[in-house]
Design a protein around this nucleic acid. Sequence first.
DNA 1: GATATAATTGCAACTAGTTGCAAATAGAAC
DNA 2: GTTCTATTTGCAACTAGTTGCAATTATATC
Lengths: 159, 159
Amino acid sequence: MSRQKLTKIRTDLLARLVELGYRVTPQRELLLSALGQADKHLSAETLLERVRAVYPRVNKSVVYRNLELLAQLGLISCMDFGQGHVEYEVHHHPHHHHLVCRNCRAMLEIDGDAFADIQRQLLERYGFAAEMDHLALFGLCRKCREKMPVQISHHPHSL
Amino acid sequence: MSRQKLTKIRTDLLARLVELGYRVTPQRELLLSALGQADKHLSAETLLERVRAVYPRVNKSVVYRNLELLAQLGLISCMDFGQGHVEYEVHHHPHHHHLVCRNCRAMLEIDGDAFADIQRQLLERYGFAAEMDHLALFGLCRKCREKMPVQISHHPHSL
DNA sequence: GATATAATTGCAACTAGTTGCAAATAGAAC
DNA sequence: GTTCTATTTGCAACTAGTTGCAATTATATC
């Protein structure tokens, strides 16, 4: 992605913050730069590192709080990969899901409306409006399924 | 549930551990008792408390390690509710999912094969074998949807 | 540019959970 | 019942993330 585009992402998000009544601070600029420069989801920790690479005195609670804020406002998306592993990204492609392989950690991005049917069913049957615009599902990818025909025992003895 | 049934759950799981080559320790007995007595998912912390209510000197790392072990062996199920909130339970009803309301935290249990169709589709289209036997989906339940027709602003000023 | 003030940051103390390692112990073999 | 040893536990130090609060600062107004 071009340098211009990256700058645009940052300034657009800053402008949105101002519109919503929030302030532009150097810490927020740094964080949005880091997010804009990333080509994939990044963890809060990685983002803190990248922010500190530019300006080491930024406090970690500021990064955590701002990531939460931005996610709440819908300016960035927050993907929960389970076991407390959360990653953030700007909305490059607004609507997609992830298939994560438990074995090789490979991640397959799939179409955003893959779950539209089931979403409609849940609404009809249970009156439940499920948020299904950015899901992560775990399982085994094709390669790993083919490589692993037999179930591995979990016992340390047998490993 | 009857006292007998509870004891049975514990002894059954202990027997399975022995079959798999693991040892029976007082700590594991206490943990399985606590799990067997629970009528719902419990967090690791709550389980630690319950174990310590009986025998206060049990170490927390032991509880965490054993919950991980039991879940890995499939003897208990581990439900990830996102944001690092994980809960454990013995398999009373083997196959179900949860619809969790973001607003009132109400939890609706739904049928285990609600996602069978989509699971088959993911396998056909992407060769991905998704684990879909115990999912948690977030959204708004019927009541909260009806109560909340307008979108609330997130800004602290306006709250 | 100075002033006011609400938003934001930095700090320090805290929580839940993890890890490496030495000590204790369950279970097997005698 | 002793002995052996791999498993399991307890400990202490650590990590990621959270929270309350005082100090700082971005922005609006004059």
